[in-house]
Design a protein around this nucleic acid. Structure first.
Length: 1008
RNA sequence: GCGCAUGUGGCGUAAUUGGUAGCCGCGCCAGACUUAGGAUCUGGUGGAGUGAUCCUUGGGGGUUCGAGUCCCUCCAUGCGCACCA
């Protein structure tokens, strides 16, 4: 009986399906365990071998936990809203819903091939109205909440209204805003005005601010979606633009997002990234009086009121006596006021120069630039007049948009001072060498007035104290993180459940949800930065206000729907909750059920979501927790980041200059790919690549053709013609990659005698016949369709089976590590499964397994393996677990062990890794119930305990021999045995040992 | 530039706490069975040397009876941040 993996895998996948073997109940006495994968965006490209890596790891862990007696939730779904579907729609006229559904069908087929234990009854799709109804509902919860700074949590906005009614804007519960009003004022205000004020406090709010606008994509992007000044998707230029946008007030959660990191198991790298993104720093804000002339005498300036002060933010108030100039951002509001007439032209030129440059140019070029305003700030402690400069190295968006520059302590300030020859005051003595700034906190301060003689580290507090005492400064905490832009000018996203009346945003009633996306057939942008939805007036216009509620007093006339849609991360910020209770149409997730499942115990996914999805979903979870909708405030207990599987791109290329543009290479231009490589000819006019063997080897009287590479992924096989002397395969090139004039030769196989064969890869310079050199090389890079280096799991599964594929992906190395894909090793894993099969069945002899009692040796092998697999699986060391299985099967084969009592537990160990073969053999052993419900075998230490050990014996730390010594033997006796050993005596050369180190169960070291 | 990782055979990797470096697999070499090998099996495989033995975990230094593992330093690669005052 043979291992027919195709039949076996099909059979059990159907059986599990029919028997609903993966259905998970919410109602059980078992302990729970929640294993979650980052759900995929269903792109048209389908899965490559990198995608399933994390899914396989989580699948193994889920199955393992199930065997250990847990009720395991292991769901899967689709992050189905997003830009690519809409771009595809624009280009091909296919509705995003249609292409998305098509892609999902594809994905599902590919996922099913691998044999995952997902409970598909719990599938979610973020683009499904039944799902996004609750995304909209959660948005409304955020909209109707504010962050109470006293209780430090989100609370209903009604609470804030009560505060305003009682205390006006002096309430301490919420952020201070530009609005100043008394309780009486509040009551006087009309609803419209009140709503404007409330908007500035809501957790989801609409504001007018500078956003990342991407013209090419026609939408606004969040900070984490912009990389190096261009859009993360597509690499289009991004500019700053002032627009009306929705935001999430994530900044209010900055401290709790930081604090929560201590309570969750994320990698240090991941925590570091989030910490940096939040970017908390503490220091002080200091006000400096402004003078239009350098004199310290208080003079009445024209156009400058008494209140005109320059407010800066610094983390180092201890350096205040080292301030030699001030720098304000070019966008700073005081620029105009403080520019003196003499400097006006220069300043205007500089501002014009700054404005003319894109964000990208600004980042790329780091030349020092700036301009003096003509004005001065007064150092409050020594009345020194400090020139105020404008420079783009100070960012308008951070702190106060102005800094006090301390050149001896800050590198950037130092460079600026040197560049503009501004005199530098040294306040740190020998710590400053005149050449480089030194940001030390250890120096003893000099030239620093009342701070003289203090160590900087301690002076910080003293300086802040003094500033606060004088009322010219205050302690201040700053964050790099900004509120998250939450609206997109796109079609394919969740519509906002908001209707505008007279410029006031009114939330829709829960009963009116979901607000469905209208079916449309055009996706072009609306007017003035509006989304495509703005073009559909019958959807946008709401004839009369819906039933009034307390927020709608004053609403009247025609209403208009919000035409922006929510960003991609909206749906993914809470999907882990919906899986728990996916069909509930009364609430987003029943509280009892979310209390049962609680946190995601294990979350597996890539590092690319470090500061996007992972931060947003943490914030949503905290907000839902604050509002009492769930019982935990961190969504993920443990996060494991799978490494990226890179592709190896093989390419043949022409060096620029070796041939001129437009030169065509005819079919006769044959390229020889080195001594053992085939001839190839490329016709650029007719995209055709011919490869044929130049070389064959003689074996006896047979002529065999050397295997060679043919880029099957990007060329299509036309004909396969074998002649006596040469193998002639003609291939049509599907498309040309754009860079380097390169042709990618992709790892693959070639077709010969009606079969696919593996090919040999080598790096060679291709010798040329007609004067043009082609070179080949390989490069490890991200696996991507555009690079022709994608390995599709389907073909591998077809050739080797899902079990082999699963185990091979794990065998490749630790899950967290990124590595290039290499198909070659898969044979070894496949051989292992065949070898396992042969412990049960022989092709000729048939059934091998027996009911005989196992020997001590066999039991030892089994229990050693139980221990190893259990420990390795528990610590996500799946590669070593696969290796342990191989060792076990090798040893059992050596022992000719075919005993059911050994093999049966082994199958249970194996079933998380290779579920199909395990279930088949389990069934063949006569079991009637599924192996999925078996119990993980218990490790019995007694089977593996040894009575003696082969001790390594070293002389002076160098291993010289090994001696078998009983494990219960103590130091004294060991010394005697060791010293009497021939080899040891030889190496001691008659000397007396100084010391004998004996570590029981480990080793012996004789020191002479 | 700053921060964080990682460097082990021809290749992917193993060594969980400082205690026999190289497990397992690929590849390669030899052999068996074969029309054939792309199936299967057996043996070998870090390097040098006939050998005893010596060398070997990116380079150098240190701590220790003992270092792939800890410390210092340099080099290389990868990732993250990039004027955040």
């Amino acid at each position: 009986m043979e291992y027919k993996f195709r039949d076996i895998e099909k059979k059990w996948q159907d059986w599990w399906n029919v028997n609903q073997s993966y259905k998970v109940s919410n109602d059980t006495s078992k302990p729970k365990f929640y294993v979650l994968d980052m759900f995929p965006y269903p792109s048209g490209a389908g899965l490559h071998v990198g995608h399933p890596l994390g899914y396989i790891a989580s699948d193994i862990f889920s199955r393992f936990k199930r065997l250990k007696g847990f009720n395991v939730l292991h769901p899967m779904g689709y992050d189905a809203f997003g830009l690519p579907a809409e771009q595809y729609a624009i280009e091909h006229g296919v509705h995003p819903a249609t292409s998305t559904d098509q892609n999902i069908i594809n994905f599902r087929k590919q996922l099913d091939n691998i044999g995952f234990c997902f409970d598909w009854d719990r599938e979610v799709r973020t683009s499904d109205p039944a799902y996004y109804k609750w995304t909209q509902w959660i948005f409304l919860q955020l909209y109707q909440s504010f962050y109470n700074r006293i209780t430090n949590k989100a609370e209903p906005i009604e609470r804030l209204i009560k505060e305003f009614e009682q205390f006006g804007s002096s309430t301490k519960t919420s952020r201070t805003t530009v609005h100043q009003f008394t309780a009486a004022d509040w009551k006087e205000m009309d609803a419209e005005k009140q709503q404007h004020i409330l908007m500035d406090h809501r957790l989801a709010y609409c504001g007018f601010g500078e956003v990342n606008w991407c013209e090419a994509l026609g939408t606004v992007l969040a900070n984490d979606e912009v990389v190096n000044g261009v859009s993360e998707r597509g690499g289009h230029p991004v500019i700053k633009k002032k627009l009306r946008q929705w935001y999430l007030r994530i900044t209010e959660y900055a401290d709790r997002l930081l604090e929560g990191l201590d309570r969750i198991e994320f990698s240090d790298a991941m925590k570091e990234m989030q910490t940096n993104w939040i970017g908390k720093s503490s220091g002080a804000e200091i006000d400096f009086e402004i003078r239009l002339t350098p004199g310290p005498s208080p003079d009445k300036e024209k156009g400058l009121g008494d209140e005109a002060v320059l407010r800066v933010y610094t983390t180092r108030p201890d350096t205040i006596f080292g301030v030699d100039f001030m720098v304000i951002a070019p966008e700073h509001e005081l620029v105009e006021q403080i520019t003196t007439p003499a400097q006006k032209i220069e300043v205007d030129e500089y501002i014009f120069f700054v404005k003319s440059r894109s964000e990208r140019e600004r980042m790329a070029e780091k030349k020092i630039s700036g301009v003096f305003t003509g004005s001065y700030a007064l150092n409050p402690f020594d009345q020194r007049a400090i020139p105020i400069w404008i420079s783009e190295y100070v960012l308008a968006g951070y702190g106060t948009g102005a800094i006090m520059a301390v050149p001896c302590g800050d590198e950037r300030d130092h460079k600026f001072a040197k560049h503009y020859s501004i005199p530098i005051t040294n306040i740190i003595g020998k710590y400053y060498n005149g050449e480089d700034a030194n940001a030390t906190k250890e120096a003893v301060l000099e030239n620093s007035g009342f701070l003289n003689g203090m160590v900087m580290r301690n002076a910080i507090e003293v300086a802040i104290g003094k500033l606060e005492e004088l009322g010219i400064g205050m302690r201040k905490v700053n964050y790099k993180m900004r509120d998250a832009a939450f609206s997109r000018q796109r079609y394919w996203g969740e519509p906002f459940p908001i209707v505008w009346y007279n410029g006031v945003a009114y939330p829709m009633e829960e009963s009116e949800l979901p607000l469905e996306l209208p079916k449309v057939d055009s996706y072009s942008s609306g007017p003035e930065g509006e989304g495509p939805l703005a073009n559909f007036s019958e959807w946008v216009n709401v004839p009369s206000p819906p039933a009034p509620n307390h927020l709608r007093r004053g609403a009247g006339g025609e209403g208009k729907r919000e035409t922006n849609t929510m960003p991609g991360y909206a749906g993914s910020s809470w999907y882990f909750l919906r899986y728990m209770d996916p069909h509930n149409n009364q609430t987003f997730c029943d509280r009892k059920i979310s209390d049962y499942w609680g946190q995601v115990d294990l979350y597996i996914g890539g590092t690319e979501h470090a500061v996007g999805h992972l931060l947003y979903s943490r914030m949503w979870t905290k907000a839902l927790y604050d509002l009492g909708h769930i019982g935990h405030d961190e969504p993920y207990k443990k996060l494991v980041n799978q490494g990226m599987i890179q592709g190896v791109s093989q390419m043949a290329y022409v060096r620029k200059g070796d041939f001129e543009e437009g030169v065509s290479i005819g079919k006769s231009n044959t390229i020889n790919l080195g001594p053992n490589f085939p001839f190839a000819s490329i016709d650029y006019n007719e995209p055709m690549l011919q490869l044929f063997s130049s070389d064959f080897i003689n074996e006896g009287n047979k002529e065999l053709y050397k295997p060679f590479n043919i880029p099957i992924e990007f060329v299509e096989l036309n004909t396969s013609d074998l002649t006596r002397n040469k193998l002639n395969v003609e291939l049509a090139i599907k498309s040309y990659p754009q860079r380097l004039n390169a042709i990618y030769i992709v790892p693959g196989a070639f077709y010969y005698k009606e079969k696919w064969w593996a090919w040999n890869e080598k790096q060679t310079k291709i010798e040329v016949i007609k004067g043009i050199s082609f070179y080949t090389s390989s490069e490890v890079e991200k696996m991507s369709k555009s690079k022709y280096n994608v390995i599709n799991p389907d073909s591998l599964i077809d050739k080797y089976g899902a079990d082999t594929f699963r185990m091979y992906e794990m065998f490749l190395g630790p899950v967290e590590i990124s590595k290039p894909w290499d198909t070659k090793g898969i044979e070894g894993v496949h051989r292992f499964l065949k070898k396992l099969w042969r412990l049960f069945y022989d092709e000729l002899k048939g059934k091998l397994w027996t009911d005989e009692k196992p020997t001590a040796d066999e039991l030892k092998v089994l229990h050693k393996t139980i221990k190893k697999i259990e420990e390795d699986t528990e610590r996500f060391s799946f590669n070593t677990a696969v290796s342990a299985f191989m060792i076990c099967v090798n040893e059992l084969a050596d022992l000719k062990s075919h005993k059911k009592e050994i093999l049966q537990p082994l199958l249970i160990l194996l079933t998380p890794y290779a579920p199909h073969i395990a279930e088949e053999l389990w069934n063949l052993l006569g079991n009637t119930s599924s192996i999925l419900n078996a119990a993980f075998p218990a490790f019995e230490a007694s089977y593996v305990t040894e009575s003696s050990k082969e001790y390594p014996v070293s002389i002076n730390g160098k291993l010289r021999t090994t001696i078998v010594i009983g494990l219960d033997i103590e130091q004294g006796e060991v010394e005697e045995i060791v010293l009497n050993n021939d080899v040891v005596q030889k190496w001691m050369e008659g000397k007396t040992p100084k010391k004998i180190i004996f570590v029981k169960g480990k080793m012996v070291n004789v020191v002479i």
